[in-house]
Amino acid sequence: MSETMTTSRPATADVAERGNASKVIDRIGATILAIIAVCTVLLLSVPSLIVIAISFTETAYIGFPPQGFTFQWYADLFARDQIIDAAVTSLQISAATTCLSLALAIPAAYGLVRGRFFGRGFASALIVAPQMLPGMVIGVATLFFGAYIAFRQSNLMVILALTVFCLPFAVRMVMARLTQLDPALEEASLSMGASKTRTFFEITARQLVGAIIAGGAFVAIEAFDNLTVALFTASPRSRPLSVELYNLVQFDSSPMVAALSSLEILAAFVVMIVLAKAVGLDRLRT
């Protein structure tokens, strides 16, 4: 419509015809676009739904469509000490990595955003650099470094390596918020007599809560799920859940694996809803 409206010449047959042709093309284009978008939506959601569906099957093998309905595989899961231990290990690793990452990231972000010092560009580049590397490289490098200084694979090694891997997420989230924060808020607090420390805790940190929660949640999830770093740094005697699951996926074909996966999907969904309520989903994009 707009084509003919803005033409200065009167709408001749030629113009009208061309308008119709482009209308047909537009309709085809819009249809293709919509079809692909629907495919993408299915691609994003259906695999998880299939895993959940299969976790309730009564058959002893993975098959589609699932047959009957049973919680047996979930029961099996909780009966296996090996898996419970691995889950506990993963929770410990996740908690420790999150605390360590945030403890390093919050002051680092503050220094990088508010500080004026020589080599600030270099420091920021170093702090976000690990994010550009595949987890495998960080895992391998830590393993080698450990071997070099006679430090064995262990939960501690997983935590130290994962913190390197996760630090950039946390720093960038806090930095993003801090950059938007008006420095005058801090100056206002100072001019009212508050110390820098008090200002940081009562004013600055309060404004960063959302970013800290979002960043912390991302680190916690990544540290819990991570396989690429953990595979190289975890001790064979206390394996985190991700490594345990990796072995199960390769060597166990029972629907119990689907049950474990379903639980992880469920947990991720709960975390996301909580995050969306707490800080808003848009925040998660940074």
């Binding site: 680092a108 220094g111 004026r116 702090i127 630090l167």
Partner: peptide
């Protein structure tokens, strides 16, 4: 401004640069 970033910096030197 650098000091708040120092722990993270040091951490990465030991557990990232050295590995």
């Amino acid at each position: 401004g650098f000091w708040p970033a120092a722990p993270a910096f040091l951490y990465l030197v030991v557990f990232f640069i050295m590995p």
